[in-house]
Design a protein around this nucleic acid. Structure first.
Lengths: 329, 329
DNA sequence: AATTTAAATGTAAACGATTACATCAAAAGA
DNA sequence: TCTTTTGATGTAATCGTTTACATTTAAATT
């Protein structure tokens, strides 16, 4: 593969002139521009990003940290990130951390090593302390899961109020016994959604009963199955259940199906995230939709602004309660 | 951020010696090694990949081309690719082409520009001609979807025989009227799976009826709904359906559920891919499992071998028919 | 025609590493 | 003691760009 010097020689100019043609900087006569373009054509020259990046000390690569690919929750966010990034001359590198500190370190090092220009983290299990240290020297944005009171800019929704709205919807349908399928409260969104759940119950003078709050060990659909099974074993069963994630809600639906219980007649179910499968289930699932695409798009714009040295502020986006069959009674 | 020269100065040695310590090449006395390591520590030095890559003209980055992130089919393959790659000092860049030639070009250029060392393509809509040209100069491997008679090495399963086996399973259950929900036959796997379908029918002297073969315009679950709807409008309905993708099969299940038909009593359904949602449906879905993880793992090993200049051969892996409720009668 | 101004192009250093080759000192062998 | 061998380290070129600065050339002004 030809380099810039060979192009310069063939065009009878210096490498500086070729570079000027390539980057449309400085001045170059239309005559020599033509000669250079011809030489580039003939040699099928493609500039090496490595040389360019080294010189400019930028890679135009963004890292996106997610715990794992298989969670459909992230796909639309990633689309938003990718669209904005590509439109602005950046590429993204999807990094699966598997909640593994070693993997995480690899990606942190890529930024330190100048292999990437910044990070968007969507990993709730990320080592926040290390990330905050890194954020001192490099552009970093948090997306969806963030650090309350931390210094890293984030884009997210108001989880507490979203959960509140979902519960209120269930209450208005006449449900007084509402269960919560939550996940580990080490996650911010879990704490926030529980708060919203409790606020709604309090507001309508409904008791908060611990046996109706089930905490799962993970987000897999199996955990939802398990949770529903436990809730159905109670003497006084809830008449509705709010799960903090669609995969859990779909697991709950599955268990109800297996038991021959009708949703929503016997029990209403609400999920969270509006993943694509949430309207493929029978019945289709009422859920809270986050503006995924916009969230990703916004995160990318914040990151690139930050890379360019501009100051960025955290953003809270709107959510939407999508009412489907699982609460239509 | 300190560079190698500063480390060298602080340790009182030359940059060459620091490099030797870093890469564990050449010889260096334990005394100076210690001094260098101390200096690295003190300056919190991290070598710049840009400099290293430029000098070695390699990026240790692999591109993985997929049509879109939201297809759960790819997740396990990607895990396999990623595990092998990271274990061998490479990182992967997940590239969503959206079946868009412009996007595709961006990624092809990354390889030409030395920003990436090779490509694993899983994109059935990839411009095979361009890719083949690129493969002349750069390491490229096809995964799952490949070019029959082409020159690019691939890893895949025997789709024809997998479909054959699925249909034979349905026949053995007593089904004589078997429908096929296929997708556009521009895709190799669609052609191959259809062949397997037809071979099984012929072998058991069952007629191949065109009205039982429905071709969808895409792989979304909605297309499966649509396909099932059409098949149920026929005078003589099939008693079993084989869909070439789980998402289509799940769409078909949904339509059957809506109509109040029982699966498998009224109609059996078989899918293809064993995506994670295929055992969350009611009933759970019989499907063909490809060895996703292994496929990815193999593809990565082939690519890295190819990068290192070794010759690689195409590989055909085994599949497995997973029998679940949707065919248990 | 002489001078000033502007446009076009070239020169060479820089980015940060790696490595072939040269050099030097110490250990081994004669 | 003198030569040879080996191990340890340094020197400087190299990878492929970009860009500040210098220089040349052409156009504009007087």
């Amino acid at each position: 593969m030809a380099n810039i010097l060979e192009v310069a020689r063939r065009a009878g100019v210096s490498s500086a002139t070729v570079s000027r043609v390539l980057n449309k900087t400085g001045t170059v006569s239309s005559n020599t521009r033509f000669k250079v373009e011809k030489a580039i054509e003939e040699l099928k020259y493609e500039p090496s990003m490595l040389g360019r990046n080294l010189r400019n000390s930028e890679s135009r690569l963004l890292l996106v940290l997610i715990p794992n690919f298989s969670n459909p929750y992230y796909t639309e966010i990633i689309n938003g990130i990718e669209d904005y990034s590509i439109a602005n001359g950046y590429n993204i590198l999807l990094c699966e951390t598997d909640s593994n500190p070693d993997r995480e370190n690899i990606f942190f090092n890529m930024v330190k090593n100048k292999l990437a220009d910044g990070i968007i983290s969507m990993d709730p299990t990320v080592n926040m302390q290390k990330l905050t240290e890194l954020a001192d020297e490099h552009p970093i944005i948090l997306c969806s899961e963030y650090d309350e009171g931390g210094s890293i800019p984030y884009v997210a929704i108001d989880n507490e109020s979203a959960a509140y709205k979902a519960i209120k919807h269930l209450i208005k349908l006449g449900n007084h016994n509402i269960g919560l399928i939550n996940t580990d409260e080490k996650f911010l969104y879990a704490r926030q959604r529980r708060k919203g759940y409790e606020r709604a119950l309090k507001e309508f003078n409904l008791p908060i009963r611990n046996e109706w709050i089930y905490t799962t060990a993970g987000l897999d659909f199996q955990h939802g199955v398990q949770a529903m099974r436990k809730l159905l074993q109670l003497n006084e069963k809830p008449s509705a259940v709010f799960a903090v994630s669609d995969t859990l809600a779909i697991g709950a639906l599955k268990e109800l199906n297996v038991r021959g219980l009708n949703v929503p007649d016997d029990l209403s179910v609400v999920g969270f995230d509006n993943i694509s499968f949430s309207n493929m289930t029978t019945p289709t699932l009422t859920t809270v939709a986050q503006p995924m695409y916009k969230m990703g798009f916004t995160a990318a714009s914040m990151l690139i602004n930050s890379i360019k040295g501009r100051k960025v502020e955290s953003v809270i986006l709107d959510y939407e309660l999508i009412i489907r069959e699982s609460t239509m009674k």
